[in-house]
C-alpha cells in the first residue's frame, strides 16, 4: 500500500514504514534505548530526504521517551532536579544545533555532516560498548563478580566547582559536567534526530557516576523535552517534520517496544549490551561505506522553494 508523505513529498510503502517502526521499537524496548539512532539512518537508506528523516526522527523519539518515562515515574526512578539541570544545557544545545542545521543545509553539506556524525558516534559508542560487554562476559565466564560503579572512586569530574546535592540520586556533583553533557546531547538531537540516550546513559554511569537505577528514567525525562523542543523548532524553521511518517513510526514503534521489553527481560545484561554494540557498529559501518565508496551519481539537484 503506497502512501504519499506530504512533507517528504514522496510516495512510500506504508507497510515498510510500519515494519521499520515496529522493528526499531522492538529493539529499543529490548535494549532500553530511544531508537532514534536507528530510525534516522533507516529512513535515509529508504530515500527519505535526510532533513526530513532527522526532524521526524526527533518527533518519533518524543513518543517512545514519553512512554518510557511514564513507567519510570510510576516506579520513582526519575531524578527531576538532575533532569532539569541536564535540560537547561539540552535546550541551549538544541538551539545551537538547529542553527548549525540551517547553516549546513544552505552550504549543501547537511547530508554529509549527518552521515559523519552518525559514523563517528556510532563507531565510538558501539566500539566502547562492545569492549566493555566482552570484558564483562569474560568475567562472568570466569565467575568473577561484575560491577559497573565502584563507589568511593572519584575522577576529575568530581573536583569541579558549583557542586549540588541531588537527593534522589544520592550524589553530590558539580553542575558543570551535567549542563555540558545536556548541551552536547542537545546539539546531537538537532543534527542527528536522536534522543541521545545511547550516549547519555553511558556518560552518566561511567563519567558522572550516577546510580544506574535513576539514570535511564532521568535521561528519558529530559529527552522528552529536548526532542519536543527540537521537533517544534524544526517544524518552525525548516518545515521538515512529516506528521504522517512520524505517526506511522510512533504507533508501530510503541507496540514493537512492548514486545521488545519482554524479550529483553529474558536476556542477560552483558549479552544485551554486546548485541546492541554489534547493531550500533553495523549501522555505523554501513553509513561509512556510503561515504567512502565511489558513488553511482556525482551530481545532485536541489529544487528550491519546495522539497528538500
Amino acid at each position: 500500500m503506497s502512501i504519499y508523505l506530504p512533507i517528504a513529498e514522496i510516495s512510500v510503502n506504508a507497510f515498510i514504514i510500519l515494519g521499520m517502526g515496529a522493528a526499531v521499537g522492538f529493539l529499543s524496548g529490548m535494549f532500553g534505548v530511544g531508537g532514534g539512532f536507528l530510525i534516522t539512518p533507516l529512513l535515509i537508506f529508504y530515500n527519505i530526504p535526510p532533513a526530513v528523516a532527522v526532524a521526524t526522527g526527533a518527533n518519533q523519539v518524543v513518543a517512545s521517551s514519553f512512554s518510557g518515562a511514564l513507567s519510570h515515574f510510576r516506579r520513582g526512578t526519575v531524578d527531576i532536579k538532575l533532569g532539569l539541570i541536564l535540560l537547561s544545557g539540552g535546550l541551549v544545545g538544541a538551539s545551537v544545533g538547529i542553527y548549525l542545521f540551517v547553516l549546513l543545509r544552505s552550504l549543501g553539506q547537511l547530508d554529509l555532516i549527518i552521515s559523519l556524525f552518525y559514523v563517528i558516534f556510532l563507531s565510538v559508542v558501539g566500539g566502547l560498548m562492545l569492549i566493555e560487554s566482552i570484558n564483562s562476559l569474560r568475567r562472568a565466564a570466569a565467575n568473577k563478580p561484575t560491577s559497573f560503579r565502584k563507589p568511593g572512586q572519584h575522577n576529575w569530574v568530581h573536583r569541579l566547582p558549583f557542586k549540588m546535592r541531588f537527593k534522589r540520586s544520592k550524589i553530590y556533583l558539580s553542575a558543570i559536567p551535567v549542563v555540558g553533557l545536556g548541551f552536547g546531547i542537545g546539539v546531537l538531537t538537532s543534527i542527528m534526530g536522536v534522543g541521545g540516550g545511547f550516549i547519555m546513559v553511558p556518560a552518566m554511569i561511567y563519567l558522572l557516576r550516577i546510580p544506574t537505577n535513576v539514570v535511564i528514567g532521568t535521561s528519558l525525562f529530559q529527552i522528552i523535552f529536548v526532542t519536543a523542543f527540537t521537533t517544534i523548532v524544526q517544524a518552525t524553521t525548516n518545515q521538515s517534520v512529516d506528521i504522517f511518517l512520524g505517526g506511522m513510526l510512533m504507533v508501530a514503534g510503541v507496540v514493537g517496544a512492548q514486545y521488545g521489553v519482554r524479550v529483553g527481560q529474558k536476556l542477560r545484561g552483558d549479552q544485551l549490551r554486546a548485541l546492541l554494540a554489534l547493531l550500533v557498529l553495523a549501522v555505523g559501518v554501513r553509513l561509512a561505506l556510503d561515504l567512502a565508496l565511489t558513488p553511482d551519481e556525482f551530481y545532485s539537484v536541489i529544487t528550491t522553494k519546495e522539497g528538500f
Binding site: 513518543a63 517544534i232 517544524a235 524553521t237 518545515q239 506528521i243 510503541v254
Partner: peptide, 30 residues
C-alpha cells in the same frame, strides 16, 4: 493538502501538534 498548508503556514502550531500526537501515542501505549 491540509498537512502541507498547516506545516508551511502555521509552522509553530504544526510543531506543537506533532509533539502532542507523539505524547498521546506514548501515553496511550503506556
Amino acid at each position: 493538502q491540509f498537512i502541507f498548508e498547516l506545516a508551511h503556514k502555521h509552522a509553530f502550531l504544526y510543531g506543537v501538534l506533532a509533539v502532542a500526537l507523539a505524547m498521546f501515542t506514548g501515553w496511550l501505549a503506556s
